[in-house]
């Protein structure tokens, strides 16, 4: 099976389900997302993104969470086939 590429969350299409690979940022950033359940290995669904560098909304375990654009750019994910 071909391994799907690792891309930042902002590049994912709305409606697509992805798996979190890692958060490239300070420990503060990673731990804030971690506390909300966004951590390596978790499956999340990108619900939407607000245009012009607005936040990305993802669904994790049935909860919708808005993540600022900068943070979403540093959250690396792979698509689930």
């Amino acid at each position: 099976m071909k391994k799907s590429p690792v891309i930042p969350l902002i590049k994912v299409e709305a409606g697509e389900a992805v798996r979190v690979i890692g958060v490239h940022g300070g420990p503060g950033l990673a731990s804030r997302l971690e506390a909300l359940g966004i951590r390596p290995g978790t499956n999340i669904v990108k619900k939407s993104a607000i245009f012009m560098g607005g936040p990305v909304i993802v669904e994790v375990h049935g909860t919708q969470i808005a993540i600022g654009h900068g943070m979403a750019a540093r959250t690396m994910v792979e698509t689930i086939n």
């Binding site: 950033l29 909300l36 909304i57 909860t63 969470i65 808005a66 654009h69 900068g70």
Partner: peptide, 9 residues
């Protein structure tokens, strides 16, 4: 600071 917020139902 970046926004991280839960969107309630």
């Amino acid at each position: 600071m970046p926004l991280v917020a839960e969107i309630p139902p």
